[in-house]
Structure formats: C-alpha cells, structure tokens
Amino acid sequence: MSESSVRLNVFKTYKLYVGGKFPRSESGRVYEVSDSKGKWLANAPLSSRKDARDAVVAARKAFGGWAAATAYNRGQILYRIAEMLEGRREQFVREVGDAEGLSKSKAAAVVDAAIDRWVWYAGWTDKIGQIAGGANPVAGPFFNLSTPEPTGVVTVVAPQDSSFLGLVSVIAPVIATGNTVVVIASEKAPLPALSLGEVLATSDLPGGVVNILSGKAAEMGPHLASHQDVNAIDLAGADPALAKELEIAAADNLKRVLRPQPVDDWSADPGTSRMTAFLETKTVWHPTGSLGAGGSSY
C-alpha cells in the first residue's frame, strides 16, 4: 500500500461528563495524557473549580429522582451499564492497556472485572436495604423500622493507579444505593474514565447521577471538600497530605469521609463497606397499640 492510501484515523476529543452532557472544561484548559511509555495519547480537559461546582449542581439536581427511583430500577440501569460496557469491551481493553501499561490479556482481565463489578452492584440495589436495615424490637407498643438511605451528593477522588476497575469500584457502590457522584478521575490516566461517560450516557442512567471530571485532585479537591452542598467524600485516590487537607475541609459541614485505604487487588470481593459508607440510617417509629380500647391493659 502506498503512503497516500493509508487512512488517517480519527482522534477522539475527550470531554467531561457532567449532567448527562459532554462539556469541555469551562476554563478551556487541557493537559496532555500519555501512555506508560510516555507516548502522547490525547489531550484531556483540565477541569477547574467552576467545572467542579457545575458538577455538584448537576449531581444535586439528579439526587432526588435517583434516590426515589425504585431499587429494582436502579439495578436494571446498573446492569444496563454492564451490557453497554460488554459491547465496547475492545475499546476499553485498548484504553486500559494504554493507560496502565498492561498487556492485552491483562487489560482484558481488568475490563472484565470492571464489567462484573457493575453486575455485582446491580444485584445489590434491592438487597442492601434488607441487609443494612430492619425492624427493631423496641420495648413498647411501637413498630420501629430502620432503613438505609443515600447520603446525597458524594465526591470521589478516584484511585490513581487503577484507572478503570478502581474507578468503577468506587463509583458503582455510591450510586447503587441512590447517591449521586462527582468523581475526579485518575489524574495521569483519565481516558478510560472519560470514555465511561459515553457508556453511562447510553445506559438509561439519568444525567447528573455520575459526573466525571478530569484534572488535578489537588486543584478541585479542596473546593469539593469544603462545598456546603456536598454530603460526603471518598478520598480513595488522594495521597496522605491531600487526604488530610480534604478531611479537614470536609469538617465544615460534617461530610461523611471515607479515608484512603490500601487496596492491593481491586478485583477482590469488595464487600458492602463502600456502600454502607454512604448510607444514612433512618429509623421511623409508629405506634401500634391495641386493636380496640377493650384490649387496654388498664
């Protein structure tokens, strides 16, 4: 084949995913993203604090509807995400391989684990309430029921190294239970996260439930951590100094804080703790009483 007949491939412009749309950073800034060997892959938006603010607005707007959706419906949508991902498996294998310097087979294993993780949480949506809640046998004529409820808008600093499986592992449990999320993708490997936005947009997930920002956690983090309309923060991808700074800022409105925890293997059984970290327990009391005045104990 001659030079002239080689088809020039079409680059993708990577964009943020906020409120169900794909905006560029309002700042107009981008930064270079390279693969593990330093080869340029793409330019990613360098989100600003205003992008973060907009993402919080979108997440708050989406919260009421998402929290009120039936658990079955949320499960269906999370499963749909897995279906959509399966269909774009090859793309993600390539992107994850580039991002994390993995062989094709290792990258494929990571993507498969991420798809399976959506399936895992899809199944949890209508079970976590039974595991984490229940009736309490109070010593009185009352029906007393504890129910887990989503905390609200959760900010997540995504893991830095595991750009895709790690990302899925931290956002899926947050939204499975009805929270909405603003996630700061891995700073050096944001492309799989930004591509995930395209999957989410075609998975019946209401806009604003997941908002994906690329850029510097150290730049956006403090604004999100101190934001009075954010209810919780997951510091998974923050280094110790940043984590401490953000935890201090989070105290301004007593956000729920999930501190960074060492994760050796993101493919291990995740348990339920990432869900329960962003659940509130609401306990409702209601009198039962006797069926009639005749049954009174007096």
Partner: peptide
C-alpha cells in the same frame, strides 16, 4: 384518637 398516645397520657 391515637390509642398509644391516649393510653400513655392517661398512664
């Protein structure tokens, strides 16, 4: 009339 509340007040 809430039975539990009424009986609690009387008690």
């Amino acid at each position: 009339v809430d039975a539990v509340g009424l009986e609690a007040r009387a008690a």
